[in-house]
Design a protein around this nucleic acid. Sequence first.
DNA 1: CGATTTTTTGAATCATATCAACGTACGTGG
DNA 2: CCACGTACGTTGATATGATTCAAAAAATCG
Lengths: 203, 203
Amino acid sequence: MIDSLIAHINKFISLDEADIAEVKTSAKAIVVKKKEFLLQPDEICRSNYFVSKGCIRLYFINRSGQEQITMFGIENWWITDYDSLETGKPSQYYIQAVEDSEIISLHKKTLDELLVKVPKMERYFRLILQKAYTASMRRFQYFRDQSDEERYRQFVALFPGFVQRIPQYMLASYLGFTPQFLSKIRGKPESRTRNQDNTDVNS
Amino acid sequence: MIDSLIAHINKFISLDEADIAEVKTSAKAIVVKKKEFLLQPDEICRSNYFVSKGCIRLYFINRSGQEQITMFGIENWWITDYDSLETGKPSQYYIQAVEDSEIISLHKKTLDELLVKVPKMERYFRLILQKAYTASMRRFQYFRDQSDEERYRQFVALFPGFVQRIPQYMLASYLGFTPQFLSKIRGKPESRTRNQDNTDVNS
DNA sequence: CGATTTTTTGAATCATATCAACGTACGTGG
DNA sequence: CCACGTACGTTGATATGATTCAAAAAATCG
């Protein structure tokens, strides 16, 4: 199970046997049941979580009392509240299993030590963060450049399998609108809104 | 001028004299006049830019033909299109000077070499990216948790000086609404919209 | 199976966009 | 250093995408 993490790391840098041993002693595999929490508001986030199997969501309760999903973590994604993890301030987020999942947890303290013992890992996490930042920018751009309906249709086109794994109200929350609205556009025919040669729908 | 970069790096890691020399030979100081471009769409982004003085914006033209500002870079911020920089794919963004500015440019090739020669720099950029990612998440959250008017009032409260440095239409674009709307809320008295004990307006 | 959770539907409402016109400021060349 | 043109800001009328509320219908789970 930790091997899925090792495999992932090896896509970015190359670890020798000693490095792999260090990673293995630093990481802890845990199993979480659907709806179980890895983090809740007012707690300090103490670990970075690698999803080796299943699906995790990160969300907060907005001022109207609604859940707002900020990100999903699926296979081979890291998920954590970097702000709380780094500063030690209490988090405002929930991190919760959407499905029964297998998680590799790297505790902050252990992670810091690992980065000293295996400096290559600095590069790995730099690259991971660069990817995460890029994805976040792209997501943000979609939010501002598309109508809610377009964003929904694009998401379904990009991740048809994923859409079926989660309840609709979570998809609505992730995409930034109400479940009622999602239900309405699903009912409508594919009213191909503004369609101008939709090239480049990358991941 | 490059010293401002060295100073910044030293806030995160400690460089010895040899390291500093490497950074200095890798970096190139450039001066850009207001409205000058560091990047335009269809070009490949080849450098990471550190703003040592002035103000830079990163934006794209959306499908309605409007400029949408994704981020501002001010003193001590790195600004680049990480996606294009990393993948070598053409960018869709503009990077442009909002004021006459002083920039430290790190070319991708030189940067990669520097990271090999001075591995500590991996850590520096990991930390920078972590901060950038955190900021991006926070900004995204504000977009979804606040009305346009609230977001404007909070921004003015947080960065009163900066608001005066840029034209209103840029602020509107950054905050995600039209210049007309900004003009309207500026005219209004401080109609303290939904105000429910607004604690925690952190940076 | 009954109980909860999730999805659907319709009507009324609201925040913000759009369009269009006018006012103001500002920097650039004569 | 003034005048003119362009860039920027304001205002009002109208349009619209999405929300809210409420309630019923459907699906899922122990």
